[in-house]
Design a protein around this nucleic acid. Sequence first.
RNA 1: GCCGUGGUGGUGGAAUUGGUAUACGCGACGGACUUAAAAUCCGUUGGGAGCAAUCCCAUGAGGGUUCAAGUCCCUCCCACGGCACCA
Length: 818
Amino acid sequence: MTYDYKEIESKWQKKWEEMDLYRAEDFSDKPKWYNLVEFPYPSGAGLHVGHVRSYTALDVVSRKLRMQGFNVLYPIGWDAFGLPTENYAIKHKIHPRIATEENIATFKRQLKSLGLSYDWSREIDTTDPEYYKWTQWIFLKFYEHGLAYKKKMPINWCLSCKVGLANEEVVEGRCERCGGPTEKREKEQWMLAITKYADRLISDLDTVDYLEKIKTQQINWIGRSEGINFTEKVKDLNIEFEVYDSIPQTFLAQTFTIIAPEHPLVKKLVEGTEYEKPVMEFVEEIKRKKAIKKFDIEKDLEGIFTGRYVENPFGTGDLPIWIASYVLADYGTGIVNCSAHDERDFAFAKKYNIPLKIVLLPEDKKQAKKVKKLDEFYREPDGLIQQPEEFKGMRWDKSREPLINYIEKKGFGKKAVNYKLRDWIFSRQHYWGEPIPIVFCEKCGTVPVPEKDLPVKLPDVENYEPTDTGESPLAKITDWVNTTCPVCGGPARRETDTMPNWAGSSWYFLRYADPKNDKAFADAEKLKYWMPVNLYNGGMEHTTLHLLYSRFWNKFLYDIGVVPTSEPYARRVSHGMVLAEDGKKMSKSLGNVINPDEVVDELGADTLRMYEMFMGPFGEAIPWSAEGTRGVKRFLDRVWKLRNRVENQESRIKNKILDSLVHKTIKKVTDDIDGFKFNTAVSALMILLNAFEKEEKISAHDYKILLLLLSPLAPHIAEELWSHLAPDPSPSQEKGGVSIFQQLWPQFNPELIKEEKINLVIQVNGKIRDTVEIEVGLVEDEVKKTALENEKVKKWIEGKEIVKVIFVKDKLVNIVIK
RNA sequence: GCCGUGGUGGUGGAAUUGGUAUACGCGACGGACUUAAAAUCCGUUGGGAGCAAUCCCAUGAGGGUUCAAGUCCCUCCCACGGCACCA
């Protein structure tokens, strides 16, 4: 026997919409709560069962919080700009706008079929001009404050597609789309100065409740290090540069300097010398190799001498300047001083016979001798500094601070901070993105589009193919490109690059607070009411991109006084992936994709929802199991069937054990939902149902509690069964409306949860020998006596010496014998 | 290589943070119902020894701390995720 989920689910979805049950009220008297899930990219593939998992989880939390009296904002929208849609449009000769609309319609239908309690009145779409108007507005604010700037940058260029690629579109040096090789090309790019916020993006993590692994990943990604900038002069040339060193303790060991092959200074160093030709050839060779594959430090140490020297930086002689494959142009200053106490430098020097100098040795004399004799690489924390003389004998790991101060005092260099984080390349040469609201005027130069002229709308084009020159497809729309300068009225050209797909998602959480506003990106009072997001769920893969970007944007907006909180998200959790049944990632090519539509059709939305909550710990990747869904379906069928055994409250027979279980279940389900332990919340409900089924009859009161606890997980069946029981007052005494979701969340009675009797565990030498039922709260002497007089225990302790007896109240007694 | 997470039955996973390991679900086996099958319901189900009461052994491997370890500490192995020439 199975219930008619199809009829029930569509019936209630319609009714809930009519009742407008899930609307979030601006400025309600109730306490506010803002739940957010990362809004989906509406791809052609439709909704993934992975979406269902995280959306259901927050839906469960939202529904429960509403029943607990919160004014909950749980919104949804579409992050719809992006390359896949553009590619789809190119392939099928269809406007990306149309493709996007179709995809959104599919996603929307699918989400609605799951009975998610979104406030649909706040739906947003990043490709809507009314939305991206404000994305452009924020860009202009960045520009106004000097945080958006243009810079010549090497970009990834796919040789076969003839298109510029974002870093994330390049996989191991190859184009993500065609698999062909890519190379770096210099191009003027818009940049956002996220590095200006690097320190605060680290330190403010202390003020938010993120999973620890998310914090560490962000900190590592930003990669802050403190060290020294040495200022150095090139001998015989009027050139000075800085060299960054994050481990300057062994600075006196430095015997050579390396400059990155791509460094602009390289040319100046060798110009007009005999080294020019071989060096420039070497540089080209390395660039080519780097473009094709990742560099392997073990095998590919390559370098060449430039013929130049750094002039005697520490009074210990000149340092030859080399070029080496392993030095990066975009970290620090792109130039490094090298010593015997860095593993790569050591290996490089050995390969090219560059003289080395040792200033760190093991404390042990024999060991020190060995290191010297065999000329081994050495850098251990317990090694002793040999030079400078003032620090001789100091442990290396303790020498950092004093030596840094020494270096500064001597005037060799200055304390400096460096980051692995780079400024954000914000230009894309694509069609399907927000136009960057800038024009270039011959007279006035770079001119921002005035706020009143926003949005700069995407023009319609015939086709979206990229151009041969690597310009955006927009460059071909001359009507659009040619415009007038907002300042002087003279002829001007529009910026043809668009924003990356991360732009719209960097502030969307603010728009939900006031999605229809056409005067501002959101009303300040509404932002003050709703922000920050109380709970934000998303994937770990966004930790160093979207999550960091959106924190940056929010902080900037906070600094210019238009958002109320410095951090956008109070708490961040992440979901685990739903894998295919074979344990692999679901993918079209492997043919192992589970389509949520089919599951909803075959088993119902409630089963799908509840199964995904039950499948395993929310944060972990779990393979899909068709068998597993059946167990949940069975459970719901049994809940359905149980309605035949429900009796009036009056005739209810007192059942202490059942009462206690009911209240324990209330506590467990409540706590587990708060703690994102949905799997054990479901199992608690199963245990309760098992107990109910053992009874001839169960009371309406108890049945209602089961339904209330079930309702966030399986809303449709709970609502349907609830409607059968109406109009009895609910156990939570809410008069309110007729919907189960207008009832109060049940509360447990602490008195009923208290155990009167417990199973005392009696151990002998830590092994369980018996359990006996005793009253709760018995004192030590009584319990010990019971234990020692226990027949089974007697057998074990007979003739043995009792060393001691451990007593844990209401839990166990452990008799230690010899 | 570095950072992070994890390793528990045939299987997805529980275990209140040091106190009855294997909850709940799936599967499997046995039974009821049925002409039969499906569905449903009832029972059994970590391994080993024993007629039984009962006992022994099991949480990736090996050590340690403790009256007591899946849980804490050390060493190692494996899997997954992230970063990866960052001087």
